[in-house]
Amino acid sequence: MRELVFFLEEESAKALLTGLLPRLLPTDRPIETRFIVFEGKQDLDRQIERKLRGYLNRRASFIVLRDQDRADCRKVKRALVARCIEAGRPDTVVRIACRELEAFYLGDLRAVELGLRVGGLHWSSIS
């Protein structure tokens, strides 16, 4: 059975994808989806290798989705790709949401701040 497995750092990512995926996935060829939700970034980093290595379905494809937040997105991606290679799954797709997955809903938070004349939405205005 073909399966698309997402590794996510929190529940909100799953909520976004359950709404979004039906619009993106092909309707003519059925594909199973599974969301493996971790308890934050560090939990994801710690466990992903074992989860990839031990996954039994040979026809599964993997996508790792992580927020960039304040880190250097290239470094984050490189580290995750290295973990996937280490786990024997170099075909895993690693995607870093810049800067956070919530931006998929709201677009450019800086623009939202300017448009509504509010503060505290965009990460740089919090710090």
Partner: peptide, 10 residues
């Protein structure tokens, strides 16, 4: 699947 992960220390 659960047994495999548990064998690996999950």
């Amino acid at each position: 699947q659960i047994k495999r992960y548990m064998d690996q220390g999950d």
